[in-house]
Simulated scan of single mutants.
Amino acid sequence: MTGPDLPSLRETVARHGLDARKSLGQHFLLDPAVCARIAALAGALDGRHVIEVGPGPGGLTRALLASAAAEVVAVELDRRAVAALAELAAAHPGRLRVVEGDALKVDPGALVPAPRKIVANLPYNVATPLLVGWLRGAAALEGMTLMFQQEVAERICAAPGAEAYGRLSVLAQWRCRCDMLLRLPPGAFSPPPKVWSAVVGLTPHAEDPGSVLFAAMERTTAAAFGQRRKMLRGALKSLGDAEGLLAAAGIDGTRRAETLTVAEFDTLARVVMKVGGR
Results as ranks from 00 to 15, higher is better:
158 A>N: 06
196 W>S: 11
275 V>M: 01
36 A>Q: 15
75 V>M: 02
3 G>H: 14
79 R>Q: 11
32 P>R: 09
91 A>F: 05
207 E>W: 07
221 T>I: 06
54 G>T: 05
18 L>D: 01
209 P>M: 09
189 F>T: 01
198 A>Q: 01
107 D>A: 14
222 A>L: 13
235 A>W: 09
248 A>R: 15
43 G>F: 09
46 D>R: 14
124 Y>D: 04
63 A>S: 15
118 I>E: 01
63 A>E: 02
232 L>W: 09
167 R>T: 02
2 T>Y: 03
176 C>W: 06
134 W>S: 03
220 T>I: 06
21 R>D: 11
101 G>L: 00
236 L>D: 13
222 A>E: 14
81 A>D: 05
273 M>N: 10
67 S>Y: 10
172 A>G: 08
189 F>Y: 03
233 R>K: 15
233 R>D: 06
5 D>A: 14
126 V>Q: 01
201 G>M: 02
133 G>F: 06
272 V>M: 07
251 I>M: 12
70 A>K: 13
254 T>Y: 04
228 R>W: 02
89 A>R: 13
196 W>L: 03
266 D>M: 07
85 L>A: 03
115 P>L: 04
161 G>W: 12
88 L>K: 00
57 P>V: 06
261 T>K: 10
171 L>H: 04
80 R>T: 07
198 A>Y: 00
185 P>F: 07
259 T>A: 15
186 P>Q: 09
136 R>W: 12
152 V>F: 04
220 T>Q: 08
127 A>I: 05
115 P>G: 01
145 T>G: 03
264 E>N: 11
249 A>I: 09
258 E>V: 07
78 D>K: 06
271 V>E: 14
240 G>P: 12
199 V>A: 09
27 H>K: 05
161 G>P: 12
66 A>L: 03
114 A>T: 14
158 A>K: 06
91 A>T: 02
272 V>E: 08
98 V>Y: 04
138 A>W: 06
224 A>G: 10
199 V>L: 05
148 F>G: 01
1 M>H: 11
167 R>P: 01
106 V>F: 05
132 V>S: 01
42 A>F: 01
143 G>V: 10
259 T>G: 11
206 A>G: 12
210 G>K: 09
62 R>N: 03
178 C>N: 07
103 A>C: 05
121 N>R: 00
98 V>K: 02
88 L>W: 00
204 P>D: 10
6 L>H: 10
147 M>A: 00
261 T>V: 09
202 L>V: 11
79 R>L: 08
237 K>E: 15
267 T>N: 08
164 A>Q: 15
106 V>H: 08
99 V>F: 09
166 G>A: 07
101 G>E: 00
11 E>T: 12
177 R>M: 04
237 K>F: 05
245 L>N: 09
2 T>S: 11
259 T>H: 09
122 L>I: 00
135 L>V: 04
173 Q>K: 08
29 L>E: 02
102 D>P: 01
102 D>V: 02
262 V>E: 11
182 L>P: 04
25 G>R: 02
114 A>I: 10
273 M>V: 05
126 V>Y: 00
65 L>Y: 10
239 L>W: 07
148 F>D: 00
30 L>D: 11
96 L>C: 10
19 D>S: 15
166 G>S: 10
213 L>Y: 12
195 V>D: 11
92 H>R: 13
179 D>M: 06
156 I>Y: 02
169 S>V: 13
